[in-house]
Structure formats: C-alpha cells, structure tokens
Amino acid sequence: MLWGSFALFTLVLGLFLAAVLAPRFGRGVSQARWIILGGLILPVPVLAGLTFYAFAQGEFLLKGAVSEANEVLEVRAIGRMWQWQFSYPSVSGGPVHTDILHIPAGRTIEIIAESEDVIHSFWVPRLGGKIDAVPGHSSRLRIRADQPGRYGGICSEYCGTGHAGMQFEVRALGQDDFRDFLTGGLRHD
C-alpha cells in the first residue's frame, strides 16, 4: 500500500510539473482522454482491488485468524476513568487485575470491551486492532500474541484529563505459566 501510494503520488506530481514546465507535454492527448485515463481508468481498478482485498482481510481478522476448532478465550475488559480492569468470564472465581492483562501466547483472545463511565478504547498497537468501550454496549475484538512477552497498551479515545495516563500492559505467558496464573499460582510482581 505504501509503495502503491508513493507511485501514484509521483505520477500525479510528475504530470503536474511536466504540464507546467514542459510546454509541449501532454498536448497530443485530448482533454477528454486525459480525464478518462486519469480519472476513471487509473483509480477504478486500484480502488476496487483494494476495497475487496480489505473486505477479505477484515473478514479474516474478525474471525480472529483461527479455525473454528481452536477454542477462543474470552477476556472482559472494563474501562473506567482512568484504568482498565481485566477478568475471565469463563473461569469462575478467576483472577481480576487492573491495568495488567495476562493472556496465553499462541491462542486467540476475544476481548469484550465495556465501560462504566465514558467512551474508552482498548488498543495494543503491536497486537493489532482496536475496539471502543462504549457505555451500555459490549463490543468484541479478537487478538492474538504469537510469542510470550510484554506488550504496551493504551486508551485511544479521548476520555478526560486522565486519558494520557490510561496505559496498561499485556503479558503473554506460555501455556503452563498461564494455567498457573489462572489458578492463582503465578505471583504478581
């Protein structure tokens, strides 16, 4: 997408400069042809291709890039001014943490974003995707960390004076560590 944009930009600017600076440039092509070539023939296929590729890609991301067989782990993320609280609805009596989200690496996570006050937005830049937590709604997003590690997360919808400080951390754990974590075995540091 970046290179395509660069090519189009160079094309349009090049044509502009050539048309102004070189007196004979482009005069052999009729005006109607200029418009049809540049205004229809050029953008229509590009845009159509891009749009339909994006539909397919969006569908893929929605399904969380998993086959149906692979089980999805649900995480409830509740935003409030100005922190996130994470819990695991499928694990009764499971841990509840503030501003730290533990997830198993290599497994698809479904974030259920909710809010107790104003609109927040759950975003972990390196794990992709973003979902708004709108009061009165619960919206869902699937993410996945392939490698264990720590990933920074941030609120990306302006939510008042504490917005800039509303950061959290995602800790992707190995399967065993995560099992320990759910049963309270993993110590919080």
Binding site: G26, V29, W34, G38, G39, L40, A48
Partner: peptide, 26 residues
C-alpha cells in the same frame, strides 16, 4: 468503506481535468 473508496473517483476526475487544462495551456 466502499463509498469512502468511491468518493476518491470524482476527486481523481477533477485532478485530471486540471492536469489536462494545464497540459493544453501555457
């Protein structure tokens, strides 16, 4: 999303109309 992509086409038509004007003028 589709409408957002489509709206680029009228813009492209205008841009190339201006380029055509420039090319045929001095």
């Amino acid at each position: 999303s589709a409408a957002s992509a489509l709206v680029a086409i009228p813009t492209a038509i205008q841009i190339f109309a201006w380029l055509a004007t420039l090319a045929h003028g001095r």
